[in-house]
Simulated scan of single mutants.
Amino acid sequence: MKSLGSIRSDFAPWLDKSAVPFIRFEGVTKRFGSFEAVDDLSLSIYEGEFFALLGASGCGKSTLLRMLAGFEAPSEGRIILDGEDLAGIPPYRRPVNMMFQSYALFPHMSVAKNIAFGLKQEGMAKADIAERVEQVLKLVKLEDYAKRKPDQLSGGQRQRVALARSLAKRPKVLLLDEPLGALDKKLREETQFELADLQNQLGTTFIMVTHDQEEAMTLACRIAVMDKGQILQVATPTEIYEAPNSRFVADFVGNVNVFEGTVRSVNGECITIETTAGLDIAAKSEAPVTAGDNVAYVLRPEKLKIAVEPIGGPNVMEGEVWDIAYFGPVTSFHIRLDNGMIVKVAMVNATREGPLQLTWHDRVFVQFDEDAGLVMTV
């Protein structure tokens, strides 16, 4: 399948079969007693990527990051960084640096001294330390805050100090463990773009652990969706969202409607699905299917249209407004179809009045196009 969505046209090494991965996890397993936190996992990450490990708590993403940092050792398998096997190399000798969610700043030290601490521990010359600190302060736009203490800074400023300290040692790889989790929603959204721009400017390989789907979609060149110590899909954000390879990925990333059913007829890529809810769906299928196959039709809420009058086109359903949630840019409707199924519809609030003047229990029509969803074999 061709690449979907917007990517930097000059940066997509995963599409180049001759490109050599910068980091490789080869058959990596990590056990804690009888529990396997990471299960025979293999993964390639390329130099200059902003890569996200996405999954729920306990899926193994932080363990994977800690093994790369050297805080944990694999029970089986190898981790290769820039051609070097990391086995036996202690954390302080690895060309990586880790930025934690808590930031772990020294409260009694100024911003400049916090940034300089690691460089001083490495024995760098005083003049070189001063020059490096000045460089990274300028990079994160905190030149005027060098003499302040952490408690004199906002949450976003402390986050940038921690980032500057992590970058001061010029690591080959920067590891970020839920880097924006301590910030409020609005500041987190603003900082996401700053962080993405900074990574693009530096060209340093960033690997981020997060459970926040929007954060991963905003920041990452590619995302690995994890569950139970395994990687289920590695792809660009658009591909993860628009072309998930499993029901789990489709349901985990964003909202989704799922229609279970059986293929009744096939005419080229056009198929008819007889659903268990009593609906017949006309769809286009990229996956090869035959009549009689059990399938799931996965449909994102924003792909549906809603109206108070009958709508033309395929796949028209009728029901009543069951729930309404106003999110500012988008209004989410839960429509209870006449067969009892609840369908989620998301509409952009393009005007101040909202997309439609609807209220609870209004009768409505819902429609979607044949190519709006994704057919998955069960």
Score class of each variant (00 low, 15 high):
M1P: 08
S3W: 01
S3N: 11
D10K: 13
W14K: 04
L15Y: 04
K17S: 12
A19P: 10
V20N: 13
I23R: 12
R24Y: 02
E36D: 12
D39K: 15
D40H: 14
L41G: 02
Y46T: 05
E49Y: 02
F51I: 06
L54E: 01
L54M: 05
L54F: 04
A56K: 13
P74C: 01
P74S: 03
I79M: 07
L86G: 08
I89M: 13
P90A: 08
R94P: 09
V96F: 04
A104Q: 05
A104P: 10
M109C: 04
A112H: 12
Q121N: 15
G123Y: 12
A127T: 15
A127M: 12
K138H: 15
E143C: 06
D144H: 15
Y145R: 13
K147R: 14
D151W: 11
L153Y: 07
L153T: 11
Q157D: 11
R158K: 15
R160Q: 08
A164W: 11
L180K: 08
D184Y: 13
L187E: 07
F193E: 10
A196G: 06
A196M: 11
F206Q: 04
H211K: 05
D212T: 07
A216H: 01
A216Q: 00
L219H: 09
R222C: 05
R222G: 04
A224N: 03
M226I: 03
Q230H: 08
V234Y: 02
E239D: 14
P244I: 08
N245A: 07
S246K: 07
R247N: 06
V249D: 10
A250I: 09
A250C: 07
F252N: 02
V253C: 01
G268F: 12
T272F: 02
E274D: 15
D280N: 14
D280K: 12
A282R: 12
G292T: 10
D293P: 01
D293V: 00
V295I: 15
V298K: 00
A307L: 05
E318D: 03
E318C: 07
V321F: 06
I324F: 00
Y326C: 06
Y326L: 13
F327N: 12
V330A: 03
V330K: 05
S332Q: 14
H334K: 10
R336Q: 15
R336N: 03
Q357C: 06
Q367R: 15
L374A: 00
T377C: 11
